[in-house]
Nucleic acid binder design. Structure first.
Length: 674
DNA sequence: CCTTTTACTTAGAATGATTATA
DNA sequence: TATAATCATTCTAAGTAAAAGG
């Protein structure tokens, strides 16, 4: 049987040396790495001018220094300067959830097609609808976290040590190690934790009030252990690492139709306290340990069934479903109606094919976007209120790169996207500016003031005051779009282009923006590689802002900035002294030393300039995450082609894992335009 | 239809490793 | 040579959207 992997093969893959393995997967027309990649096959490349479109641009709000990004904006898109505001987590529990019943039952009031209901979308079986994804699949299943080992450290209750069973101690420790996190200040977290801890303590336990608990002995023990580990002699560390690698090696690879592929997340999630984002109703709940009996394995027929270290147990199920790409899944112990999956890694064929398809679909949108824009603008004037709402929603999705915004459950964080916007999320600023303020995915705040078409402004005003039946909307937490939801948007968009869905607009706008900015950028030729990279980063940043990709300000940020300022100060002083020396040397006409000083002055100046730029970029990017768009939204062929045109080594832009994830895009021709 | 289930992509924080700097 | 800053990787939560189910 060929399924088993030779150890040396495993080692290669485990090390991430997958180039040969990884490039192969795109088998259709390639025999070797050098062959024409899928990218080229798929695209009968049209060499067209860089796309320039009326793209959405937005001004970030939580961004102190707004001056720079504004001047290069087309006037039309300029946005009213925003009020300064703090980064995250506004307090915004809707006062009353007014009429939730109505909220849920809204929609469907009006019937069908908004306008010129073109050829209804044709079902093309995509890679999710029962199509065969593999013929042979072999892997080693999942790796379980080690069982809990009791440390025997006692916690204190009313100042006195308390004995805990290992089971109790495990949960106490989960809580103890979170001592320094913000969750400790979160009432809901504490309540949920207590509700989980109490039954584990059992009836009549001495511990009856969380407030009287002191977990710090456990916390300190945990920290001490950590220190110990850090202080371990080098050889021991190396040996430990080697052991770990060896234990994991077999889980890291899978064999798919004879190809070796890396597995992504082969580890079963260890138990812990749920760390939801934002105001998550379930934060602090105990996420229970997962066992083989909870896990369904997916594997090729006739392949050896993966083993597990729990003698009495069986896998929940073993399936041989070749229409899906997951290797295993289990029910998420926190939200009973969702699953955790084990998939192949980002560089696998499954994922690469998915990526390519995603970007090709977004590129296809380019040929339809004008018609689509015309269509939704026409809908603004429709007699059908549903069409009007849909038209405005699509405009937001296109211009602002908003997410679709599906309905959420009561037991999830209260966040919104386009379709689920509430009145309280939009403020009308006469004559034609809309101010958005809402918590989106991951409870990241989206704040933006956008100048919109007059008609859109009027429509949003209409939606803000009256529903589709002309009844007044009274509550701030009422739906802005009361006649439609995300599903309706997806259906609508399919009328406009086959297989189009709402999220494609984000990909499209992100990629086409990068493409345009890179073709517009002029620092070629005499500019240094670093300067050209800075160009790239600026474009990347613009996309990140468009997509609202944020990150928390690094805790040390302020201190680091101060330090830089201080350093700059002393550099300035040094420059000053040098300049004085130079002047003196000139006076005394010691030519040689003057020349030397002159060059030292120049050097110092450059040093200062570099530092200034560094400081500016750092401050600039303190809340902006560039990585997310690079990984998920920007067609790598744009980047690769730009690197080729500008003689920038691709490694400057893509790190090792991105290179591997995007191996399929590497031999795109330099003229590629998205 | 409308809701629920399933499968997949996208997301920021936390952690770990590497590099720059004092 | 330790410490700090930066960068890469891991982790798992939180979205989207299609299909299945009733």
């Amino acid at each position: 049987m060929e399924a088993a992997l030779a150890p040396e093969q495993i080692a290669e893959v485990a090390k991430g040396n997958v180039q040969s393995i990884a490039s192969e997967p795109i088998p259709t027309n390639s025999e070797s790495d050098e062959d024409m990649p899928l990218s080229q096959r798929a695209l009968k490349v049209q060499k067209q001018a860089p796309a320039v479109n009326g793209n959405a641009k937005r001004q970030r709000v939580n961004y102190k220094d707004s001056s720079d990004s504004e001047d290069d904006m087309p006037l039309k898109d300029k946005i009213v300067p925003p009020r300064a505001a703090a980064l995250q987590g506004s307090k915004r529990k809707p006062e009353s959830r007014s009429d939730p019943a109505h909220d849920k039952k809204r929609r469907k009031t009006q019937s069908q097609p908004a306008n010129g209901a073109s050829t209804a979308a044709r079902k093309k079986p995509g890679p999710q609808s029962g199509e065969k994804r593999w013929s042979k699949l072999c892997h080693s299943g999942v790796l379980f976290p080690p069982e809990y080992e009791a440390h025997g450290i006692q916690m204190l209750y009313e100042g006195k040590p308390v004995d805990l069973t290992p089971e109790q101690e495990e949960v106490a420790t989960m809580f103890a190690v979170m001592k320094e996190t913000d969750y400790m200040k979160h009432e809901r977290f504490l309540r949920n934790f207590w509700d989980a801890f109490k039954p584990i303590l059992g009836k009549g336990h001495v511990i009856r009030d969380l407030k009287k608990c002191d977990f710090s002995p456990i916390y300190e023990h945990h920290m001490a252990e950590r220190e110990k580990k850090k202080a371990m002699p080098k050889e021991e560390k190396v040996a430990l690492k080697a052991q770990k690698d060896a234990d994991e090696a077999k889980y890291k690879v899978a064999l798919v139709d004879g190809r070796q592929e890396q597995v992504g997340n082969f580890r079963v999630e260890p138990p812990g306290l749920f760390r939801g984002r934002g105001e998550h109703p379930k934060m602090g709940k105990l996420k229970k340990r997962v066992y083989p009996r909870d896990i369904t394995i997916n594997i090729g027929k006739g392949e050896p069934i993966p083993e597990h270290p729990f003698p009495g147990q069986k896998w929940k199920e073993v399936r041989h479903d070749n229409t899906v790409t997951w290797l295993a899944y289990w029910k998420d112990p926190i939200s009973q109606n969702s699953f955790k999956y084990v998939w192949l890694a980002a560089n696998s064929t499954f994922k690469s094919e998915g990526d390519l398809a995603k970007y090709e679909k977004a590129r296809k949108l380019k040929y339809h976007i004008d018609d689509i824009r015309a269509a939704y603008e026409k809908d603004w004037k429709s007699k059908d209120p549903r069409a009007r709402q849909m038209g405005v929603a699509l405009y937001f999705i296109d211009k602002l790169a908003l997410r679709a915004g599906h309905e959420k459950e009561e037991d999830e964080a209260d966040t919104v996207g386009c379709a689920s916007l509430k009145l309280e999320n939009v403020e009308l600023l006469e004559p034609e500016t809309i101010r958005f303020d809402f918590l989106g995915k991951d409870s990241i705040r989206y704040e933006n003031e956008v100048k919109v078409e007059r008609k859109v402004f009027q429509l949003v005003k209409e939606f803000s005051t009256h529903d589709a039946h002309g009844n007044k909307k009274k509550n701030r937490d009422a739906q802005l779009f009361d006649t439609m939801d995300a599903q309706d948007l997806n259906r609508r968009v399919k009328e406009l282009m086959d297989d189009l869905s709402v999220k494609v607009f984000r990909t499209y706008n992100a990629s086409i923006t990068l493409n345009r900015l890179l073709y517009e950028s002029i620092s070629e030729g005499s500019y240094s590689v670093d300067q050209r990279k800075a160009d790239y980063d600026r474009a990347n940043k613009e996309v990140a802002i468009l997509c609202n990709h944020q990150r928390a300000v690094n805790k040390a940020h302020a201190g680091q900035m101060e330090k830089m300022q201080g350093k700059m100060q002393s550099l300035m002083e040094e420059l000053h002294d040098l300049q004085a020396d130079l002047k003196a040397a000139r006076k005394s006409e010691k030519a040689g030393s003057a020349d030397a000083l002159q060059s030292r002055v120049e050097k110092k100046k450059q040093q200062i300039e570099k530092m200034e730029l560094q400081a500016k970029v750092k401050e600039d990017l303190k809340t902006v995450a560039l990585g997310t768009s690079k990984i998920n939204y920007l067609d790598p062929r744009i980047t690769v082609a730009w690197c080729k045109r500008n003689e920038v080594p691709i490694e400057k832009i893509f790190n090792k894992s991105l290179l591997s994830k995007f191996h399929w895009s590497m031999d795109v021709e330099p003229e590629f335009s998205f």
